[in-house]
Design a protein around this nucleic acid. Structure first.
Ligand SMILES: [Zn+2]
Ligand SMILES: [Zn+2]
Ligand SMILES: [Zn+2]
Ligand SMILES: [Zn+2]
Lengths: 163, 163
DNA sequence: AAAAAAGTGCAACATTATAACAGTTGCGAG
DNA sequence: CTCGCAACTGTTATAATGTTGCACTTTTTT
């Protein structure tokens, strides 16, 4: 089989972060949106790892940096980032994760490891076609899809087998 | 096209409720689980309509009936009902809906109308096969799937066109 | 009947998210 | 330039959702 996806193996995560920030700047410029320091910092914090971060986790990191912040600060930044497709909210975790497919106008499928907490975002036309087809069969007009798969990632499966 | 699914047309909803309760009794008996009065009443309240109900909505109805209840009462009943496959939690709404496919050991796909709030639960092997396939391709071991589709139901689409 | 297990009531608390309003900043029109 | 609007931010308070811990009761098992 081919190489594991990034979250499942050691990698230069700083590259993930700087690429995400670069794309964010580019996208905001295109869309005439202001990626203010707070927003950029929140995005960077979200990208600290491939584990989704709760709004209050972000808040704690901000305040620990001396940033005088309250919940609305964080939620407003997260709303902005979601609106511009830079982060996703994981409904089953009440947490946020950086978008791995910015600009692609995609329907994300999230693989959430319940052991290590890492999340891998996929896009899969087979899946989204099947969903649209099923919805259409009921004459339902689809607008948004929440698709979150919980389970065990390959790295954690290997861990388990070594025990 | 064939007849619309139940939530999308007038129907004898009392039949939905009594069938759901009958199945619940049968399933609990099979599984040696105790469908106590509180649990049964919560299930009945959840089935009051095809719109998901929040835990605190259930709580309000219980207390308005004179039942001395606190949040844990409701959450415990809901946990029990979920455990036995009698209700589902809709993560994107923080709300609960009666299971329309009890006993089938299924992966639900929920079509959620953002206008009327009704939810239709489907099972679709095409969809779940596609999801399992996508997860397997990443060597991910799937345990649970959250799949919620937001949009406009056929009934509400018709409404819009009449305006 | 005694012991164990499952269920319930209750109080307190934890977590997640929003409302309302005042102040500030960036930016274009005149 | 500077006035004025729109977007953004800070702050306080509050709403909505969910959990913990413990004492007590009911049911089941032995
Ligand atoms: Zn990375
Ligand atoms: Zn893992
Ligand atoms: Zn019905
Ligand atoms: Zn509708």
């Amino acid at each position: 089989m081919s190489a594991r996806a990034l979250p499942y193996r050691p990698h230069n995560h700083d590259a993930c972060v700087s690429q995400a920030l670069a794309e964010a700047r580019s996208i905001c410029q295109q869309q005439n949106a202001r990626l203010t320091p707070t927003r950029e910092r929140v995005l960077e914090l979200i990208w600290q790892s491939h584990k989704p971060l709760g709004a209050y986790d972000v808040l704690a990191k901000l305040t620990s940096e001396g940033h005088s912040a309250a919940p609305p600060t964080v939620y407003r930044a997260l709303d902005f980032l979601q609106q511009h497709g830079l982060v996703h909210r994981i409904a089953s975790l009440n947490a946020f994760t950086g978008c791995a497919h910015t600009g692609e106008h995609h329907t994300g499928l999230f693989l959430i490891c319940r052991t290590c907490g890492n999340v891998l975002e996929l896009t899969d036309t087979g899946v989204s076609d099947a969903i649209h087809k099923a919805a259409s069969a009921e004459a339902f007009r689809t607008e948004a899809i929440t698709l979150e798969v919980a389970g065990i990632c390959p790295a954690c499966q290997a861990e388990q087998n070594h025990e």
